[in-house]
Computed example of a mutant assay.
Amino acid sequence: MVLVTKYPPIPRLSIVVPVGCDAAAFEATLVSVLENQPDGSEVIVCHDGDYDDPFSLAGEVRFVTAASNDLVDAVSAGATAAHGRFVHVLADGLRATDGWADSALEKFEHHDAGVVAPVIRSGLDQVILGAGWHDSADRLCKANASGKRKVSAGRKNIGAYLTASFWRRDLLRSLGKSCDLRDELEACYAYEWMSRDAGWRCVLADESNVISDHDSINGDESSWSRGTRLRAIRSSFQTGGWSKACKASMIATIANGFRPSMFAESIGQVFAPLSEASITKSLRPQDVVASDDGGAAMIHRMPERSFDVSRRAA
């Protein structure tokens, strides 16, 4: 008798669902994923060690322990544990819809598509809260929110929100190891700039819809710190300094002339040079897998089997 060892099929997609601070929101997100789970996919739940699986889902999902319940740590742990060629992150408060992953995965047929942004819609009236984001004169990391039910014309350079995004697995892994920023919005912004620097681009999947239980994108709140920190991150990849920061701040202030709530964020960009040095030290774009180096290799590489779920992802 010949014994043949059978290995489970390697999934094409790994869906990472982090456990956040809101247990009810996390459960709603996980249920939506399981109800609409695509064929050839696995579901990974990332938590800080305190989640005890009250619904006995160990047979349907894989549980991975992250360094903390911060989104950035959870995503990093999920990407390291993922067996799929592609990784989808869906954070709590967001819900999957029927077929939402199919059209997003099709976008990876473009060899330089490293990340794909789905359309985030309000659960109340289906209007678009964010079809990715872009940088504009009045604001950095500005949501592509049309306030309509149809996606507006695409933009050349967009980014994806980390809370709802599709990635090439090896790209996401390398970003997690190359960025020390732990704030969710800052990491989201830095990931996009590092990806561009490595030759990748973000693509919008206009037929991939996720539903938000909130009426705004997380991290979209205006603040002085938001303007300062995002401008400092951008300056790490473009010309920085006081002159550039002052000019950007002045333009943003004028552009937001009829929106007083945005003044603090606009003026905050002036002080970006104070944070540029520390932020630059937190980013190692040279360690991000490049589109011309990793594109073919990451598709055919066998999954690692040595991941210890009791420890933080390396």
Results as ranks from 00 to 15, higher is better:
D125F: 10
Q126Y: 02
S122D: 13
A131G: 15
Q126G: 05
N144W: 01
D135M: 00
K148W: 07
Q126P: 00
A131V: 15
D138T: 01
V119N: 07
S146R: 03
I128G: 09
G147Y: 04
G114F: 08
K142D: 04
V116P: 12
R149S: 12
P118V: 15
G123Q: 12
R139Q: 11
D125W: 11
L124I: 12
A137H: 01
H134E: 14
D138S: 14
N144I: 15
H111W: 12
G130N: 11
R149N: 09
D138I: 00
G132E: 10
V127G: 01
G147P: 12
G147T: 07
A143F: 00
N144C: 07
V115S: 11
I128D: 11
L140N: 06
I128P: 09
K148M: 12
A145I: 04
H134S: 10
A145Y: 02
V115M: 14
I128W: 08
A117S: 15
R121P: 09
A117V: 09
G123W: 10
D112L: 14
V116Y: 04
K142I: 00
R149L: 13
G123L: 14
K148H: 13
A145R: 06
R121F: 09
L129V: 12
I120V: 15
A113C: 15
G130D: 12
N144H: 01
D112E: 13
K142G: 01
G147I: 08
A113T: 15
A145K: 03
R149Y: 02
C141K: 04
A113H: 03
G132A: 14
E109R: 11
V115K: 07
S146V: 07
G130Q: 10
G132H: 12
R139W: 01
A113E: 07
H111V: 15
H111I: 13
D135E: 04
H134N: 02
W133A: 12
L129R: 05
L140F: 12
K142L: 06
S122Y: 06
I120S: 03
G147R: 02
I128Y: 08
C141D: 02
V119Q: 07
K148I: 02
V116L: 06
D125S: 10
A117E: 07
D112Y: 05
N144R: 10
N144Y: 01
C141Y: 03
P118F: 14
L140H: 03
L140R: 12
V116D: 08
R139Y: 01
A137R: 04
A137K: 03
E109I: 05
A137G: 03
H110W: 08
I128E: 08
V127E: 09
D135I: 01
A117M: 06
R121C: 14
A113Y: 03
W133I: 01
N144F: 01
W133E: 04
V115W: 02
P118S: 14
R139K: 14
R139E: 06
N144T: 08
D125C: 10
L124C: 03
A143I: 03
L140P: 01
G147Q: 04
G132R: 09
L124P: 00
V119S: 06
L124K: 10
I128V: 15
H134L: 09
C141T: 00
H110K: 11
A145T: 05
H134I: 14
K148Q: 13
V116C: 06
Q126A: 13
G114K: 05
G132Q: 11
D112S: 15
V127C: 06
V119H: 05
D138A: 15
A131R: 09
D135H: 02
V119P: 05
E109A: 09
A143Y: 00
G132P: 07
V116F: 04
